[in-house]
């Protein structure tokens, strides 16, 4: 299971779970996007899960990251899930209306 400062990547059956580690800002989002995109294209999973449980801070760069990955997944016919964003992260997601279009689940539902 590849792990670095930005991301932990786990495969569970046909799903790939990306656990983002640390803050998501413009600087870190660039690298995280690259890592997620290459993994999606290589693995071609049925489901992409982005786990935000370890993310303490996220700004609008995170919205670009999540909505961009959602768009790519949808275009490739891959299901997209967001796992347990904390209340502060949720506040930003709600600002962009993400809770209406994204499948946001708790940690248990992901397993």
């Amino acid at each position: 299971m590849p792990t670095n400062d930005f991301l932990k990547i786990e495969k569970k059956g046909d799903a790939v779970i990306f656990t983002v580690l640390g803050d998501i800002d413009h600087h870190r989002a660039k690298k995280i996007k690259q890592l997620i995109d290459s993994e999606i294209f290589i693995c071609q999973p049925n489901t992409v899960c982005i786990n935000l449980g370890e993310v303490d801070f996220m700004d609008s760069s995170g919205l670009g990251l999540i909505l961009g990955r959602y768009r790519i997944s949808t275009e490739l016919g891959i299901a997209f899930k967001l796992i347990e964003p904390n209340p502060r992260v949720m506040k930003i997601l709600k600002l962009a209306g993400c809770e209406k279009i994204l499948d946001i689940v708790g940690k248990e539902a992901a397993n």
Binding site: K33, D59, S60, S61, G64, G68, I92, L95, A96
Partner: peptide
Amino acid sequence: DGERSGMGFTVMET
């Protein structure tokens, strides 16, 4: 390219 949300000032205002 659709990778920036355009929400920066909205976040600041909110």
